[in-house]
Structures are given as structure tokens and as C-alpha cells.
Simulated assay, not measured.
Amino acid sequence: MSDLKAVALKAVSCLDLTNLDDDCTEEDVIALCKRAQTPHGPTAAICIWPRFVAAARTHLGDNSPIRIATVVNFPGGMDDADDVMALTEQAIADGADEIDMVIPWPKLIEGHDQDVSAIVGRVRRSADGALVKAILETGMLREPDLISRAARLAIEGGAHFIKTSTGKVPVNATLSSARLMLEAIRDSGEPVGFKPAGGVKSTNDAAAYIALCEEIMGDGWVTPMTFRIGASGVLTALLATLDDDGEPTEGEGY
């Protein structure tokens, strides 16, 4: 197997196949569930709106290797905290395995650091053991110090993963923001994972993030338990690499 094929195979197993389109339907979610079971093995998860979690769980069943992730405090990061907890609890009741939550990044820009760790901690408690990924929205934080602070605060709050972006803003995952986040994970000493999301469109893009993870965290660190890619379109490119069909690019990923 070529190096690029090995990367593609690993990336498929670490993919959170995503549909967070505003016009998404239940039929779209069922199609996403089917697409996540690829000829080269299942993706790590699907990532969908909370209102579709129950339908996805019914379709996938209780023993599926494909996990169900959903989003809260999304996309702006400034929803009422009690509403966020209620939505988290309902999503878990409906069958979600993972919660991708947006931190209140506008509050962080204003200097209210404690608001970040506090809401991450509350979501983790409301998630009742489910995996919690904290979305930093690095493209809006922009400055390296803010990104590093957001990462540290999310980790302090108990996030199992830190994630770059919602995919809903002009600038999403970048290798520079990924480096800052991975360095924060390394320096924390905590077993926290990393998820780039938005703009990962090709096998070469996936390879760049995997290589960066291995540079900072060490060879063998990248597994579905520590690394995810949030994307809607990159699966087509990964499968093309595995099937020797070239590497087409399909739309922007979340």
C-alpha cells in the first residue's frame, strides 16, 4: 500500500462525516449514515443536527461502529447556557455518543476566560459520559495567544477533544492554528484529542494534519480515539485515492 493510500485509509477511520447544512432533511441524514459505511470500513462518526439524532440512532442501531455526534451552542457559541444543557441532555437521551460544542469565543475575546472552562465543564457533566469536543472557532479568534488560551481553557474545563472550527465562518481549520492546539494538548499532559474541521478537502490535506500530529504528539498517536477530521466532502477524495481513481475535490467540509 502506498503512503498516500495508507493516509487515506487512516483518515477514513478518523472521519466525522458531517451534514450541518441548514436545509438538511431526515432523508439526507439516512443517506449520510449509509455513506459512512464505506467499502474501506466505517468512518469514526457522523456529525448531524440534534433534531436528527433519534432517526440516525434508529437507522444505525445500538451496536453500530459508527458513532453519532451532534452540535450544541452552535454555531455562534452564545446560546443561553441552560438551553445548551437541555439540548445536550436531550441529544444523549436520543442516542448521541458525542457532543461537539462551541465555546463562547466572543466572551474570550472580551477577556472572560472563566466563561470558557465553565461551560465546557457544564456540557461535560450534562453529556453524562459522552465524548465532548470543544470547538474553539480559531478563524474568529485569529491571534495565536487567543487560540492557545482557548485551547488551554477548554482542556481545563474537561473537553475530551479540542476542535478548530464550526465550518460556518470564512476561515476554518489551518495548520497554524492546529499547531497551537496540538502544542496546548502536549503541554497539558492530558489525554485530549484534536479535530480539524472545515477546509479539509483532499487526501493531501488530511496527510498534512496527520503529519503535524505525529510531529508534535509522536508516531502512532493518530487513532480515532485521539484524532478526527470534520468534513462533508473529503470522503470522496479519500475513496478515490484508495480506489486509484485520482483525487477529486468535493465541497467545503465542516
Rank of each mutant, 00 (worst) to 15 (best):
D79I: 02
E98D: 13
I229S: 00
G220C: 08
H160G: 12
L175D: 10
A206Q: 06
G77Q: 04
A54M: 12
I66G: 07
V123Y: 07
A81Q: 13
M140Y: 03
Q114F: 06
T249P: 00
T236C: 13
L141S: 01
V169D: 02
M101L: 14
R124D: 10
E156W: 00
G230P: 10
G189V: 05
C14W: 00
G95N: 11
K195Q: 07
M140G: 00
D21Q: 15
D245A: 14
L87C: 12
D243Y: 03
M225T: 06
G167R: 10
D113W: 02
E156P: 00
A231N: 10
I30A: 01
A44Y: 02
L146C: 00
L17E: 05
A154C: 14
T18Q: 07
G77I: 07
P248N: 08
L136M: 08
D243C: 04
G129Y: 04
G129L: 04
V29P: 05
G220W: 09
I119V: 14
H160R: 07
L87F: 02
A54I: 08
A91I: 14
L87E: 15
R124S: 14
A130H: 09
D3G: 06
I30E: 01
L242W: 07
M85C: 14
D28F: 01
A178L: 09
G41E: 06
I135H: 07
S165N: 11
L141N: 00
I68P: 05
D79M: 07
A206K: 05
D22M: 02
A8I: 02
L60R: 13
T25Y: 00
T236I: 03
G198N: 12
V123L: 10
A240M: 01
G193W: 01
T226A: 00
A81D: 14
F227T: 00
D94H: 11
A118N: 13
E137T: 14
I155N: 06
G218A: 02
W105I: 02
S148H: 03
T166H: 07
I92P: 02
V169K: 11
R228H: 08
R186S: 08
Q90A: 13
L153N: 06
H112C: 06
K168V: 01
D100G: 14
L17W: 10
I229L: 05
S232C: 11
L108G: 08
